[in-house]
Amino acid sequence: MLIDTIFFYVFALLTLGGGLLTITRRNAVHSALSLIVSLLGVAGLYLMQQAEFLFAVQIVLYVGGIMVLFLFVIMLVNLDLSAKERQFNGQWMVALVAVAAVGAEISWFLYRGQGAFQLADTAGAPSAAAFAVTTTGNTEILADVLFQEYLLPFEIASILLLVAVVGAVVMAKKRI
């Protein structure tokens, strides 16, 4: 379908343009706003791939939560001085070569592995995690799998969040 391709190009443009602006802008606030554009592009790509729950989580958690946290911190610290000085490392040539090598390596593997992505039809071995009939929503399937197969990782994630909360409080408080 042509419309899918157009949507893909629009979201890819948002993602890559936002990412490029994020790493090149001098002003940190501009960087953060560009990163928000990039994250919205990724959210659109999620929606294209029927990941509605992740689409919502991406917007609520990333754009609404993490990026607002970033903007708060940018407001709290004084960046006027650092915006005036040199933005890039002294060894940027070495870094450029390293990044080009990473990009070339991944592209080469993707190019060589073209046939490897003809993934087998999994209909023969249905698992609990398989997409059920399309009348069931993505969120419902996800919840079933999350609270049955992935219950232990879910609990561990909650402990991780608790550790992060305690760590942030310890870091921010002067005297405990």
Binding site: I74, L79, R86, F88, N89, W92, A98
Partner: peptide, 8 residues
């Protein structure tokens, strides 16, 4: 690798 600002 490029940037020098911690936030970026």
């Amino acid at each position: 690798v490029f940037r020098r600002n911690i936030i970026t």
